[in-house]
Design a binder for these strands. Structure first.
Lengths: 188, 188, 188, 188
DNA sequence: TATGAATGAGTGTTCATTCAT
DNA sequence: CATGAATGAACACTCATTCAT
């Protein structure tokens, strides 16, 4: 208490809790307890629980963008890049106890404008990531955006269903599907 | 109040509310108000809010099974059946204000054993539905289950991302992807 | 359900529960569940929870009177009779998990006229029991009533404190005190 | 509302209510109404109703210890000290509308570990008080502890039965018994 | 910047009792 | 004689937020 970085500690604690239990199932009290902060300090740093949620989503988005950027720039073939991203999903699901996509999960619970914007911009970035990989293979040919979106959806389905079923096979199933779509696009 | 069929009214009200707002954001008070029942009447018919949730999921599962059965038995080609199911998704999303999959949404908020079972058995049924269609095309050849699961994931991704983005394109994108996977399987 | 003797079953179930948990901590639902009766059947046989409580106290009073009568009539010296009654207390406390005196316990929770009457008449009977024993030793001499009451109080204290402490020593301590009082009365 | 010292007011209100009506018959609502506090303020200061009960018992224990200490240190003979303590009981019972011993009454309704500890430690203190008086008369002779316990039980019985019967005679009866035991011990 | 106390409105659940059949 | 469904009021407890210091 009284330590500096209260904002950081709140953000970290809230992030863990929101992710593990879901926005609606986490109370301010739980957050500040874990962050070892006073309640009023919370409202000094964040306008509301919802505002905190936005900041959280923004924060993890930035982190995940870094990871995607490094994959994009890695000396790998496009297919290998897809494979690497899917590998990372496996790890993530196991580490996070199959809690799935923070954006989709939050979307199921929160209606607020600001939160929805974070969700949309994250999803747009993800689609762009897949589009960039596809274009590394096929150039800016027609249909690359559509292919990227198909990959995006399959990937998303894997995240969702791995969470629903608490199983890992959806990731591998999605890997196959994505590679099939990838190849089929080349064979047009 | 004092009318009969309280159970039905509760179930109907809860169904709408759970779907629209999400389990955690719906209170018993709101449910009984909409159902025009006393609170104690609620607990005469349902052991707990969670128990009601289970009954709700079971109920809509049974209804959706009927719809899938009638598609399976319709005089259509397998590809047409997939198309019809995807058409229905479009309608559903528009009617439900893009609230997505009740099972996935609930899974994001509830940890209970009983609820998870409902989710798992619904998802299993959906995979079986796709498997049945795939087998109508390809017989019981090796890999039909894997193909069905890929379709399942892509379909699931469309539902999730249509909800996230409040847009309909994921459905059409998934339709293309699913047909591509379907064809590619035949071309092996 | 639907079996005969519903009244008996309710009375038995309520007795156990009232004794073990205390009147205020037992709900009608728990009683009828244990008695395997419908709720409306309960109110067919008993006007209210409080009325049931009265009947229960009356019932166990009658049973305990039988036990005291048999001690009074047994071929023992007065001192032995006291000893026997105190022996029985030890057994009772161990069997009942040290739940103490149902009358005193109920008195701590219920204010009703009817219940208080049961309590008072039970306590009067107990005082009479001790008085009868004392008179068997000392005749109807002056002060026998006062002695009986002193024994009564010491006995009561043992019951209360054995419950408070979940220990058995108060019974033995009371035994000594009672015998001391008994002897001292003779030595006047 | 909004006044300071909510904790004190809650504790005072709860003390009165618990004593008069018994723990189980007092609701949080009644307490906060009497204390003129918001419900959430209650839980700012006390973890639970049970926790409040513990604090209450601790508080009145400390007060009663003060009274006993002042008797112990008063310039009186041991017998006079016993008499004074018994006098105080008379007053207490009349003032409290014969509600008896808060510890025994609470013990009849609450099973919690923490509460039972308070009860046990209070009873231990009371036994020590009687032991101290006995030792002031007889020194640390053998059997002083046993005598103190006999006095303790008789005293306890008077409290219990005065409550049961709403009468004052048990106090005077116990006074006689206690003095008899006290004298008889000297005559051994 | 940091804090603990305070709050109104809400949570899910249980109470003893009644009523129509 | 028996019953399941219905109820208003109460239960203990938590919510996100504000305020005085």
């Amino acid at each position: 208490m009284g330590k500096p970085n209260a904002r950081e500690r709140i953000l970290e604690a809230a992030g863990k809790l929101f992710h593990q239990q879901g926005y609606s199932n986490v109370g301010i009290n739980e957050i500040i307890k874990q962050a070892e902060t006073a309640k009023a300090s919370f409202y000094q740093h964040f306008e509301s629980k919802e505002a905190l949620c936005e900041v959280w989503l923004k924060t993890i988005h930035d982190l995940s963008e870094d990871r995607r950027r490094s994959i994009i720039n890695a000396p790998l073939t496009p297919a290998e890049k897809l494979g690497k991203y899917i590998d990372a999903l496996s790890c993530y699901l196991m580490e996070s106890d199959f809690r799935g996509c923070p954006y989709s999960n939050t979307c199921a619970m929160v209606e607020s404008e600001g939160v929805m914007e974070q969700i949309k911009s994250h999803k747009a970035a993800l689609r762009n990531f897949f589009k960039a990989i596809v274009e590394q293979e096929f150039g800016e040919a027609e249909g690359t955006g559509a292919l990227a979106d198909q990959i995006f959806l399959t990937y998303s389905g894997a995240v969702t269903e791995a969470q629903n079923l608490r199983e890992l096979w959806p990731v591998e199933s999605a890997r196959s599907a994505i590679l099939t779509l990838f190849s089929a696009f080349g064979d047009r």
